[in-house]
């Protein structure tokens, strides 16, 4: 155990970890986040707070993380490289830790052209791998990125990163994952899986390089709300949506129920994929369905720490 993170402890104890995503609202209503946290509290081990996902302005991930923590649920704050330079990122890491947040997930961030301020200037002073290195340096070397020492109260985060097995160049994906682990990532969240065959190939490469023994891998799951949503995802950059899933959704009488069924089946399958340490459920704008999925996938009760 390197940190006081509850999440790290659960992984270390060998539990099949379950986390879920909470998308902060497009307003200043912290109660919306708290409500999700209360609903999810007994069903997941940690809540992942997105950082202005798809470059749309939302309540900040750190503030949302604080709301989650206040409800007794372990927050994982996302931190993207899009909107802040190395000064802002490190300052926010100090601030987040001071609020009691212990898990951070470093990622590049969607390009601003997707969001509600497409004419914004982006930052990308650091890339996600350099951000991981920075978070590790603050913790393990008690130094800022510049090398200036932190005399006391260094932030000691459990460090997460993402990888997309469905992006290209495919062969480079595992090497990039290795770079992230090399940089200091301790747990990995994958892009949501629909193409299980490709994910299995990815995991095979992960195991060949022994990466599953160097970081905990959470497989990404997104329940589909409708056939329309499935079709939409087919065109999202970095996603692979196989036609057989779209067909299955289209044929279903109750599409929402079918979406839940697919998610549950996938989790059941992933439990037996060697190297998968848990699942991360991203029920986009459908957080209420998470307890249903967790229960039906036989993941209850969640472990006590």
């Amino acid at each position: 155990m390197i940190t006081e993170s509850r999440l790290e402890k659960l992984f270390a104890e060998g539990h099949f970890v379950v986390t879920a995503e909470i998308g902060p609202p497009k307003n200043s209503n912290g109660e919306a986040v708290r409500k999700h946290a209360r609903n999810l509290k007994n069903y997941i081990d940690g809540a992942n707070l997105t950082d202005n996902q798809t470059a749309v302005v939302r309540l900040s991930s750190i503030a949302a993380g604080f709301h989650v923590l206040s409800e007794g649920l372990d927050p994982i704050i996302q931190m993207t490289c899009r909107d802040r330079n190395r000064i802002g990122l490190q300052s926010d890491l100090l601030g987040a830790y001071s609020l009691g947040i212990r898990n951070v997930l470093a990622l590049t961030g969607d390009h601003q052209s997707f969001g509600n301020h497409p004419t914004a200037k982006n930052v990308y002073d650091l890339d996600s791998i350099q951000l991981i290195q920075t978070i590790k340096k603050l913790r393990d070397e008690k130094q800022f990125l510049s090398g200036e020492p932190i005399k006391e109260h260094e932030p000691r985060f459990f460090i997460g990163a993402v990888e997309n097995p469905f992006g290209d160049p495919f062969e480079f994906r595992v090497l990039r994952l290795e770079k992230k682990i090399e940089a200091g990532a301790q747990f990995i969240q994958t892009q949501c899986i629909f193409d299980m065959e490709r994910f299995e190939r990815f995991m095979e490469m992960v195991r060949e390089r022994g990466l599953h023994e160097r970081a905990y891998i959470l497989a990404g799951i997104t329940p589909l709300k409708s056939a329309k949503a499935a079709k939409y995802m087919k065109n999202v950059a970095g996603m692979i949506m196989p036609d057989h899933i779209i067909e299955r959704m289209e044929k279903a009488e109750d599409q929402k129920e079918e979406g839940v069924k697919i998610a549950v089946e996938m989790i059941e399958h992933l439990k037996n994929v060697k190297g998968v340490a848990g699942v991360h459920i991203m029920a986009i704008a459908w957080e209420d369905i998470v307890p249903v999925i967790v229960e039906r996938a036989g993941l209850l009760p969640r472990p006590e720490v």
């Binding site: 590049t108 791998i129 469905f166 992006g167 160049p169 480079f172 990039r176 770079k179 970095g238």
Partner: peptide
Amino acid sequence: SKSLLNGPCGGSQNG
């Protein structure tokens, strides 16, 4: 588009 120095982001697909 993101000036990344350590490899492609997750949005790279089909080149």
